[in-house]
């Protein structure tokens, strides 16, 4: 899911060839799981079908000659995705990281992303805390497990917030 929005978001800074797109994605988000070309092209095909990107063809043959550009609808979709807090759940980091980096790259307010996510996490934690306060020991143990995971996420959010400036310096061209 986040790969789709990530590729889409990377187009915001200008049209790119598919090959380019894959390399940029790998550099920025890929780390230890690089994209396959096939994944890029199938995603682009789907986005093309939904009208979120368009193709600028250049003289010559073959897929290498296709340049993808984001449409207005695409930009709106990216903005909506970045701005929407994720439902707090375990192992969110990659998605959140993608959002933050994209926000920074596209000049959006990354603080806002983190804050709204923090609020969402806290809302969830509050819910769990309430449940645990009213419930029995089993509830308490289960809720605590979730709470500790959420807390770990929150700590990550806070650390990221504190390091936004450094991150921005790296990802902004």
């Amino acid at each position: 899911m986040s790969v789709t929005f990530a590729l889409l978001g990377l187009l915001e800074n200008g049209p790119r060839h598919g090959y380019d797109l894959k390399r940029t994605y790998d550099d920025t988000f890929g780390r230890d799981r690089a994209l396959h070309y096939g994944q890029v092209y199938s995603t682009m095909a789907r986005l093309l079908k939904n009208g979120l990107v368009e193709v600028e063809s250049e003289p010559g043959d073959g897929p290498e000659r296709k340049r993808y550009a984001i449409t207005h609808a695409g930009i709106t979709d990216v903005a909506e995705w970045i701005g929407r807090p994720e439902k707090p759940e375990p192992y969110l980091q990659s998605t959140l990281y993608t959002k933050v980096v994209l926000a920074l790259m596209t000049g959006r307010d990354a603080d806002e992303v983190l804050d709204s996510q923090r609020a969402e996490h806290l809302r969830m934690m509050r819910e769990l805390t309430r449940r645990k306060t009213d419930g029995d020991l089993a509830d308490e143990l289960i809720c605590d497990h979730a709470l500790f995971h959420l807390e770990a996420d929150l700590r990550w959010l806070e650390l990221t917030a504190a390091r936004l400036d450094r991150l921005a310096a790296r990802v902004r061209p």
Binding site: D115, A119, L122, R126, L128, T129, E151
Partner: peptide
């Protein structure tokens, strides 16, 4: 955060 979770709302 776990302490803040006892609140009704937070201010940052």
């Amino acid at each position: 955060a776990r302490v803040a979770a006892y609140s009704d709302r937070e201010a940052v």
